[in-house]
């Protein structure tokens, strides 16, 4: 479920890309400081996006050069600590913990053991994060319980399960400033919806093989992983309708320091991700510091 919300790097200016990278490193350092190694291990792009959205004020952020394990020999540019980073760090730990707990229930054998190990590894960090974000912790638990219920009943609506996950992301907007709360809630709702459905689509083959419930398969009555064109088109339409609403909501947000990057993510990065997921060419990148865009990438 992670790693779907990224900018379309070739379309960023170099300075914007460097900033994005500094924010990524900033979140990593924040996770390390607050939650130790366990925290750092769950760093992902989606929460970098979240910290950029929650960023208060319009001003520049401070930068410093710091060492870390991958950057042992050459210091890396890291953006300064702020409340937005700390919120995003806490929430990503909570989500990763419950996701691991959920995976453990879902799987058998080796995968179950692996998810169990991740959960155990994150227990302490998650306890600390839950103490500072109790509402978010509760929303995540409720959301996953509701999803489990829908899964048990073999729910045939695509929107019903997607709504649970989307509402969970939308609840993050309660941490934002009053003036941007409504558009941010709407934006995040549809980001959550798109991520949930795209993730389900990407997992189609694996889920069908393991005979697990998959919302896309259940909605369109798929039994084989080869998706007919009309179903693909229906999924594309519904995802791009969400993108339209996302863009409309984004336009109503006050500008901040990160607007060029977040605009790229909403208007270009997410549509690009959708097209690639539908074409089966998407690889969610998780644990890699963003690399400079290679020329000719993405079919240009």
């Amino acid at each position: 479920m992670f790693g779907y919300v990224r900018p379309l790097a070739p379309e960023l200016k170099v300075k914007e890309f460097e900033r994005f990278r500094a924010c990524y490193c900033g979140l990593c350092h924040e996770l390390g400081r607050e939650y130790g190694l366990a925290g750092r291990s769950i760093l992902n792009y989606d929460f970098v996006f979240l910290s950029m959205l929650l960023w208060g004020g319009r001003g520049d952020c401070g930068y410093s050069f710091r060492r870390c394990l991958p950057g042992l020999f050459r210091k890396k540019c890291v953006c300064a600590h702020t409340g937005a980073l700390s919120t995003a760090a806490g929430q990503s730990v909570i989500l990763a913990y419950w996701k691991a707990a959920d995976d453990r229930e879902d799987n058998r054998g080796l995968k179950r053991a692996a998810a169990g190990a991740v959960r155990l590894f994150l227990t302490r960090a998650a306890g600390k994060a839950a103490a500072s974000h109790p509402d978010f912790d509760r929303s995540v638990r409720e959301c996953l319980t509701a999803l489990r219920g829908l899964e048990r009943d073999g729910c045939e609506s695509l929107d019903r399960p997607a709504d649970r996950f989307a509402a969970l992301l939308a609840s993050v907007s309660s941490e934002a400033e009053e003036s941007s709360r409504r558009p941010l809630g709407q934006l995040l709702y549809h980001v959550g919806r798109v991520v949930y459905i795209a993730d389900a689509y990407a997992d189609l083959r694996e889920d069908l093989k393991a005979e697990r419930w998959n919302p896309v398969a259940a909605r369109f009555g798929l039994t084989v992983p080869d998706v007919p064109e009309d179903v693909k088109e229906a999924v594309r339409q519904t995802l791009f309708s969400s993108v339209d609403l996302m863009c409309a909501a984004f336009e109503l947000l006050p500008e901040n320091y990160w607007t060029p990057v977040t605009r790229n993510i909403v208007f270009l990065g997410i549509p690009d991700m959708i097209e690639n997921v539908l074409a089966g060419t998407y690889t969610p990148a998780l644990k890699r510091r963003p690399k400079s865009p290679a020329i000719g990438q993405n079919g240009e």
Binding site: Q237, F240, D272, E275, L278, E300
Partner: peptide, 19 residues
């Protein structure tokens, strides 16, 4: 509207590699 006929936001992006 649901089919995106009048969407002001859909731009020609990069799309999947094999067009």
């Amino acid at each position: 509207m649901m089919n995106g006929a009048s969407s002001p936001y859909r731009q020609t992006g990069y799309g999947p590699p094999a067009q």
